[in-house]
Design a protein around this nucleic acid. Structure first.
Lengths: 255, 255
DNA sequence: ATGTCTTTGTGAACGCGTGCACAAAGATTG
DNA sequence: CAATCTTTGTGCACGCGTTCACAAAGACAT
């Protein structure tokens, strides 16, 4: 998973657990696919398989929304699509701004998944004056100077930050000051925001590092012996006052 | 958060909780920043603030790695950087292939965060013959036909999928068959993989939908009255045999 | 050497999320 | 209408993750 919630604990809004909310888009995607194939109903078992989750979990998730299934039959696809969409707030249009039109920002602007789900790219913003006016994904890039007016004029409440890490907090502050209350952050930095503002982060590097951890573990299981030689079972840091030689310790050591 | 683990439950490798593993890269980033500013030691409180987490959580996380701190002083920055890097497997080089060089794939290829953390882009692969040979981020794109040989020749065990959803499963199968055991999936699809293969997914659309949910809730709290009119407090699906008119029900309804 | 002060490391309690397993609901068949 | 079969909805138990709160450890001053 390349995501992680930030700040706000787990607001358990209207009794719907955060973990369930995070899965609703998954169900919605699977249901949309079924809908396009004109499948009228689906069982929890089938839908769970399509969404890659446990069927009991799926049923419990849906139970938080209400009793939308029919015992002995399953769930009505179209009806469920609507209910989940409504619950997620996708029946309304969400104008979104993307700040930082580099490689990633451009990729996001071109990403079709946004428009298809009630999200509309209201504006692309970049700090580079040379970018201004240049169309990306059919939308002309605007300069950072206009950030505030863009937000207020379009009633934008969701912002996407795809700037370098160094600029992210500053951009974030300006977005929030202008009225944005939800931020999707692609910059590899921890953003500080006031209460009431939601931040979700996507960090590509972190995802790879987590994979590397598991990859290393897999490799290590085959050859545990090798490791026992390279590093003792219970490596211990040496005391700061006891700086004798230590085979287990790396080249880079504390002063 | 834009991530979510898939399949494998939570392998609790060598006693390190999955949740802790997911935070280690965060700590590492904060520590690296401190290291660059030549800060010698840091307290759990300071580091926790920099990483955006609770200090007790951080201390507990570190306790799984060993006793690397000094009471009354804090943690030695350089030493901790090494320990976490080693734990994450970043002291070795991980060759990575990126499949699908569209906007997103190109953005990933250009992303600096990879190289700086022990990851090396070994190859870029795309199904479009017109792309073959064309350099992206200084690396020539290779055709999908060569996927298997690239994997085996370079000993690649981590693959990144940035293809359209339709091609993702097929690419995934080929990667796994060729020896890849960790996959970072950007395609909006559920990937099915054999046991022993880790998949992490990054879905931009899902992240936005989760934000929309919270955004809607925030908006709804200010004007709950409006909602009581638009939709009854306990909306109920009507029975399939009882298809009378219903103000609460959407235009799209079950047959 | 003794005492004070800072900060770690962790035991314990709590809450959330997951999965099992089954009763209840309804469809379907005879 | 009764019996059977399918599938939902959920009570319950378990385990993981988080947080509190504090004892132990060590630095530092006197």
């Amino acid at each position: 998973m390349a995501t992680g919630r930030t700040h706000r604990p787990a607001t358990r809004s209207r009794g719907i657990p955060e973990a369930t909310v995070a899965r609703l888009p998954l169900y919605l995607r699977a249901l949309t696919a079924l809908s396009e194939r004109s499948v009228p109903t689906v069982s929890s078992e089938e839908l769970a398989a399509a969404a890659g989750v446990n069927s009991a979990k799926l049923r419990k998730d849906f139970s938080y929304l209400g009793s939308y299934g029919t015992r002995g039959v399953g769930y009505d696809v179209e009806y469920l699509v609507y209910q989940i969409s409504r619950e997620l707030g996708l029946t309304q249009d969400w104008p979104v701004v993307i700040v930082g039109i580099g490689n990633l920002g451009a990729a996001l602007a071109n990403y079709g998944g946004f428009a298809s789900r009630g999200f509309r790219v209201a504006a692309l913003i970049d700090a580079d004056p040379a970018m201004a006016g240049k169309p990306v994904a059919g939308i002309p890039v605007q300069h950072t100077d206009e950030l505030e007016s863009i937000i207020t004029d379009n009633g934008v409440s969701i912002g996407v930050i795809a700037t370098p890490a160094g600029a992210a907090q500053q951009v974030c502050d300006r977005l929030v000051a202008a009225g944005v209350t939800s931020i999707l952050n692609f910059a590899p930095t921890v953003l500080t925001v006031p209460d009431g503002v939601d931040v979700r982060k996507v960090d590509l590097s972190i995802e790879l590092q987590i994979l590397a951890f598991h990859e290393q573990r897999k490799a290590g299981e085959e050859a545990t012996a090798e490791r026992a030689v390279a590093a003792p079972a219970a490596p211990r840091k040496q005391s700061a006052t006891d700086q004798g030689p230590d085979g287990d310790v790396p080249a880079v050591m504390p002063a």
